[in-house]
Each structure stands twice: as structure tokens, then as C-alpha cells.
Amino acid sequence: MIDAPRDTGVAVALFASTNVDDVLVLIGFFSDPRYRPRQIVAGQFLGIAALVLASLAGALLSLVVAPAWLGLMGLVPIALGLRRLLPARDEEAEAAGGKAPVGHALAVAGVTIANGGDNLGIYTPVFATSPGPRLLLFVAVFALMTGLWLALAHRLVHHPALGTPIRRIGRVAAPFVLIGIGVMVLVEAGTVSWLYQGSSAQ
């Protein structure tokens, strides 16, 4: 048996507490003319789905893959952030052409996954102690919350009064937010220490 109202509240709190910074990242993506909204939506849902599946298999995964190796995912947002700092090349033309590559959706998913270290750490023990019906409720709530996060970011970027300054700020801040997230992932996963120890041992 599950307590639907209580478990729904737990699911909302779990998602919100582990994905607050995703709103900033999504604002950055929605502010970038190279990314189509459908690609951002697809990438975000794909990334969240991957985090949920990884959390469900978290206990087994932690026995097979060291956290320091998983931390290498932090290189994804760092690479995207550095790329955005490079001089733009026909961004508006690419956006107007309507032929943005599928890789954009995968890039959004990669950033979501790389930024999901705290998701894995929190979701895994909760999922491990939850019966099947509660897990299904959690997955449904997470899907709804993902849609809400996307709608919120999109609304902020296209708000009549706030949209222009948010887009301007988002384009400037997004590269640094992505790089910061990547560095945080590398540090918190112990990847930096692991690489440093490895280089010192040689």
C-alpha cells in the first residue's frame, strides 16, 4: 500500500531539490537560437529518464563503476560551455534553416545526466526501499515535473517583459554555468583527486 498524497509530496520534493539548477541550464538552452525547443524538450526528458534508470540500477552500478569514472561525464558541460565561448559561427542562419542536428538533443541530455550526480545519490536509496506502485508514482511525478521545469524556463525566456533581459543574461551566463557544473561534477565525484593522484604516482 502507498499513501498517494504523501508519496506525491515526497516525489515533488525529491525532484525539485535535485533539479533547481536545471532551470538555469534550460534558460540558457532556450536562449540559444541554435537549439530548437523540441530538441531541448527531447533532451531533457531523455536525460531525466536516464537518471531514473541509472538510479534504479544504482546499487549494482556502484559495484561495477567507480564514482571517479562516472565523474568524467562532467567533461560534457565543460566542452559545451567552452564551445559557447568561442566566436559564434552563423548561429542565426543555422537557427533559421530549421536543420539543427539531432546532436543538440543529445547535448541537452548529456548536460542533464552530468548534472545529475546528486540525483543518483538521493534517488537510489529512496528507490531501493520503495515498492513497485510507489516507484511508478515517482516516475509519473518526475515526468510531470520535467514538463513543468521546461515550461517554466521557456516561459521566462519568452515573457513579454522579462524575456529580452533573460535571453541576454542567459546567453552570457550559460557558458559559465555549464563550465561550473562540469567542474563541480568532476570535483564532487572525486575525479580530480583521482586524476591528480594518478599523475603524481607516475
Rank of each mutant, 00 (worst) to 15 (best):
V12Y: 07
Y123W: 10
A16Y: 12
V172G: 11
A109W: 01
G58C: 07
N119W: 13
L144V: 11
G121K: 11
L85V: 04
G117N: 02
L24K: 06
T124V: 06
L136A: 15
S31D: 07
Q39D: 09
V172I: 15
G28W: 04
A79S: 12
H154R: 15
L61C: 06
A93K: 14
L85P: 05
V187W: 07
F176Y: 15
P175T: 06
Q197N: 14
P77T: 00
L51V: 05
V111Q: 03
V177G: 09
A11N: 05
S62D: 12
A201P: 08
G170T: 06
P165K: 07
I40K: 05
G97K: 08
G198M: 05
G121Q: 08
G190T: 07
F127R: 05
R36K: 14
G180E: 03
G103R: 09
F15D: 01
R38D: 12
L106K: 02
L46D: 06
I113C: 03
G110P: 02
P5L: 02
V111W: 03
V12S: 04
A151Y: 09
A16L: 15
I40P: 01
G47T: 00
I48G: 05
N19H: 11
L178P: 02
Q39K: 09
A66V: 13
A57T: 14
T124L: 10
A95G: 12
G47E: 00
